[in-house]
Write a protein that binds this DNA or RNA. Structure first.
Lengths: 308, 308
DNA sequence: CCTTGTGCTTCTTTTTTTGCATCACTCTTA
DNA sequence: TAAGAGTGATGCAAAAAAAGAAGCACAAGG
C-alpha cells in the first residue's frame, strides 16, 4: 500500500529512535527518509519528532500521530479482510495475545478447530502477561487479548469474562494428594512454587495470603508454568494453575485440586479488544468461537463444582 | 496532506459517479486520475468501482473502503485538532447536524457562549431531520447530531438524551389561550398546522392520534416551524413545537401550553456521534457544553412541570 | 583531540506521475 | 440507422517528484 508508506516510515523511525537506523531497516537511504519526514511535518503543520544529539524521539504530537497511524493501518487491514471475505475466500490473519496458561491445551485446540473450518486463516499467538497484553492491544500489535485479571479495563471492550478457580498442582504421591478438599493454608505448609507478581495467578495468591496469618515463602519463583509442572515431580512441592492450563482428566503424573473461592478468589479470564475498534472478519469470528467455548466451559464447571 | 490524496480522489470519483467529472473537480486530467485508481485497485487487491457505460459506481468492496476513507480523514482531522490544542492555540471546527427547532434560540446561544471562551473555533450548522442527521454522521459530514426521536440508535453513541414535552402554539387571542390545562383533543378541534412525517414532533403526534377516536386533519403541513409560528397569527390555528424551539417567557404575540405526557409522549432530544469515533478537542468540548446545558435545562423543567 | 554517530543539505540521477491524443465502446438522438 | 456525445482505457513523451551519493556541522564519549 503506497499511500501509507510515509506513515510506516514514521513508525519505523519512532521504533528505531534514529532516522539512519530506520532507513537501513526500510531499505532506503537516510537522506530520502529524512526528507520524507521533514515534508510530512511541514504539511502536517507541526514537528513530530524532537531531535536529540543521539537521534530522534516522538514528541507529544508524534505520540498522538503514531496512535492514529497504527489504528489506520489496522483498520485498513480489516477492510481488506472484509473485502476478501465478501469475494468468497475465507482468508485472513488473527493476532492474539494470551496468557501462558492457555498455551499447552486451550489455544492449540481452539486454533486447530477454527482452521479446520477456515484453512485460509493464519494465526499469530503472543504469550503475554496482563500488562503486556494490554500494551499490545494499544499498539495494535494484537487484535485480541485473552488474559487473567486484566488491570485497566477502561481502554478496552470486554467481549467476555469467565471465572476460573485456582488449582493446586502436585505429584500423585504428594501427602496432600489424598485430600479431596484442600485449603490454601495446607498448601503453604509445603514447599511451593509460584509465578512472579506480574502474572495474574500470583496476584490472586497475594491477595489471599494478605488476609492470612501464614506467609508465602516460595522455594522458587518462576515465570514458566512448564517449569512448575515439572518441578513438582522432583520435590514434593506444590504449584498453582488455572484449570484451563491443566489436562484435568488425563494427567497420569500430577494431581489437581481446586482451592475454595473462600480461600483464593477466582480469576477472571477476559477476552478483550481495543476499544471501539472494528475487527477483521477472521478475528471477529475467532473471538465468537472463543466466547462460546468459554461460555460452555464455564457452565460445565458450574455444574461440576458446587463450591462456586 | 499528500498521503491521502489518492483516497480523496477515490471519494471524489464515488461522489461524481464519473472519473472524468471527478478529474475536473479535482483539477487533474482524467487519464491521471484513471491510472491512479487502477493503481490503487491493483495494490488493494480488488476492484473498487464497477464500470458502467455511463460512468462508474462503487461496488460492495468500494463501499467498505469509502467508509474507511471517511473515517480516516475524520480521524486525521481529530489528531490535528488535538495537536493544535496541545500546542496552546484553541483552534478547531465543529460540524453539527440539528433539528430545525434548535435554530432560533438554542444553537445560536450555545455557539455564542462557546465562542466567547474559544474564539478560534468555528462552526458548521446543518439543519437536518432525524434520518438526514444520521446519514450525515455515517458519512462523516457532521461530528455531532442533536435531533428529536432518532430512529436507528444502533450505529451511534448517545452522549445524552433529555425529554421535551410537546407544546401547543397559538395566538394570544385564541379561544384556547385562556385554558391552563390543554388536551390534545381540544387542539384537534381547531384548525391545526403540523410538520411532515419525517419530523420528530409529527411522529409523536401520529402516535398519539392513533390511540384516539379523533383524526388529525391539518389545514397545512409545513416543514418550516417558522411558517407555523407566523401562520397561527393569521388564522386562529394551532401549531405544535418543543419548548426548546420557543421563547417561552418573552413572546408577546404567542401563547404556549404544554400537552400532558398522557396525551402526547415526550420527545427525546438526543445528542449523538458516530459509534466509536474520537471527536476533535473542539467537538468534544462543545458536546460537553451542550450536555451540561441540556441537563440543567431538563432538571429545571422537571421542577416546574409537575405533570412529568 | 580524535572517533563515532547523529540530522541535515546540495547536486545529480532515477523513478514516478502527468498531460495529450486517441481508441473502443455504449447509449441517446436526430 | 447513422451521427453524436458521453464513458473508461492506453501509448508515448514531457514534467515532476523522489531517491541516491557525498559531504557538512554538531554533539557525545573515550
Amino acid at each position: 500500500m503506497k499511500h501509507i508508506q510515509t506513515l510506516l516510515l514514521i513508525e519505523a523511525v519512532a521504533k528505531a529512535g534514529s532516522i539512519r537506523k530506520a532507513a537501513e531497516d526500510m531499505h532506503i537511504t537516510s537522506s530520502a527518509l529524512n526528507r520524507r519526514i521533514q515534508g510530512f511535518e511541514e504539511e502536517f503543520g507541526a514537528p513530530i519528532f524532537e531531535r536529540l544529539p543521539r537521534g530522534v524521539r516522538l514528541n507529544p504530537a508524534g505520540e498522538l500521530l503514531i496512535q492514529h497511524i497504527r489504528s489506520q493501518v489496522a483498520d485498513l487491514e480489516r477492510v481488506r479482510s472484509q473485502v476478501a471475505d465478501l469475494s468468497g475466500l475465507r482468508r485472513g490473519h488473527v493476532r492474539i495475545a494470551c496468557s501462558q496458561a492457555l498455551q499447552p491445551y486451550f489455544m492449540p485446540a481452539q486454533i486447530a478447530a477454527y482452521r479446520a473450518e477456515h484453512p485460509g486463516v493464519s494465526f499469530s499467538v503472543h504469550v503475554r502477561d496482563r500488562d503486556e497484553a494490554e500494551e499490545d492491544l494499544r499498539a495494535f500489535k494484537s487484535d485480541l487479548a485473552l488474559v487473567f485479571e486484566p488491570a485497566h479495563l477502561g481502554d478496552f471492550d470486554v467481549l467476555l469474562s469467565v471465572e476460573q478457580s485456582v488449582y493446586a498442582v502436585m505429584a500423585r504421591d504428594h501427602p496432600l494428594a489424598g485430600k479431596q478438599k484442600l485449603r490454601l493454608r495446607d498448601c503453604l505448609g509445603y514447599p511451593h512454587v509460584v509465578p512472579p507478581q506480574r502474572i495474574g495467578i500470583r496476584y490472586l495468591l497475594d491477595l489471599a495470603v494478605a488476609r492470612m496469618s501464614q506467609k508465602m515463602e516460595p522455594i522458587a519463583e518462576a515465570d514458566s508454568f512448564e517449569f512448575m509442572r515439572h518441578y513438582v515431580q522432583h520435590e514434593r512441592a506444590i504449584g498453582f494453575q488455572f484449570p484451563i492450563g491443566l489436562n484435568l482428566e488425563n494427567d497420569d503424573r500430577l494431581v489437581f485440586r481446586a482451592l475454595a473461592k473462600t480461600d483464593v478468589a477466582h480469576g477472571n479470564l477476559t477476552l478483550m479488544q481495543m476499544k471501539g475498534r472494528s475487527l477483521s472478519v477472521a478475528s471477529a469470528r475467532f473471538a465468537n468461537q472463543l466466547a462460546s467455548t468459554l461460555n460452555s466451559l464455564s457452565n460445565k464447571q458450574d455444574l461440576s463444582d458446587p463450591q462456586t
